[in-house]
Amino acid sequence: MSAAPQTSASGTGQFAQSAAVAKRPLVIALGLIALLLFTGEQLSPGFASLDQILRLLIVAALLGIVAAGQNLVILGGREGIDLSVGGIVSLSAIIAGNVMAGENGGIVPAILACLLAGSFFGLLNGIGVTLLRIPPLVMTLGMLGVLQGLLVVIRQGIPSGRAAPALSEFVSQPVFLGLPGIIWLWLGIGLLMAFLLRRTVFGYRIYAIGSNEHAAYMAGVPVRLIRIALFVLSSMFAAVAGICLLGYSGSSFANVGEQYMLPSIIAVVFGGTPLSGGKGGYTGTMAGAVLLVVLQSILTTINIDESGRQIVFGATLLLLMLFYGRGARMRG
């Protein structure tokens, strides 16, 4: 049977090309990290010292854990985005600080309480987006407002809470091979995400609903259930980050998590997951998180204040959108 000739050669060429492009964000991010470290070292000797890099990695791990959840929601497509992560981080830090109240014995109950609270608000986000068909941007922004109000109320009633010594040690002191526990935790989350996305049916389905929700539905994918799960996971990752943040700073205060909303999105996009979803992964996001933290550190080194840093971050996101943001115009 002579079917229409299908040139497998050109097919391979296309694939090789698109694979190279798909890898590019990771390569670019790693290249930029090296460049920034080198620049930082020139500006301020000691910037790229081992101790300093380790400190940067701890900060990057906090951001990276939040970005893991953000990454999942964005991969799921349909304008998926979670603007409430900052509120969850703050809430989780306050809950954890109050439950453990400086005692090691309180760590396990604190973790449980935070995960429970996180999954509750994530569930609300998921239900709002799927069953009530509220756009994720609006739903999670509304949720952020609710959480901020809630934090004000909580703070008037209870003390800010303190981290247990073991938690602080876990976050900032070396526990194994000279690396602090939080870095191992982050690597573990990296492996978990890779496994989830590449070796489970759940992962296949995330990509499926992210690239063609209707076709996925027609092929039997439980679209709503998956999307709800993504929002729950996002809030749970944010809750974990909140606990670690408490360990990092010692005590919790309101709005401590606010600073994570925008960077968590930038890290995902920098890592090669377009805001339209359906492709990309977490490895690039991890590199994106490190890159952002290094960038932030450089800005601090050259005495650019908080408002300046915000401007740089916002402009970075817009530039990223321009280069390889929504959809795949560049790749087409």
Partner: peptide, 28 residues
Amino acid sequence: RDGVISGRPILENVMPVHFVKSRRPLAV
């Protein structure tokens, strides 16, 4: 509209129905 999960590999486009029927959580 209804069929192709665009942008994803061929493998991921063949498997979704099997996932529904096999009910296994892992994708090897």
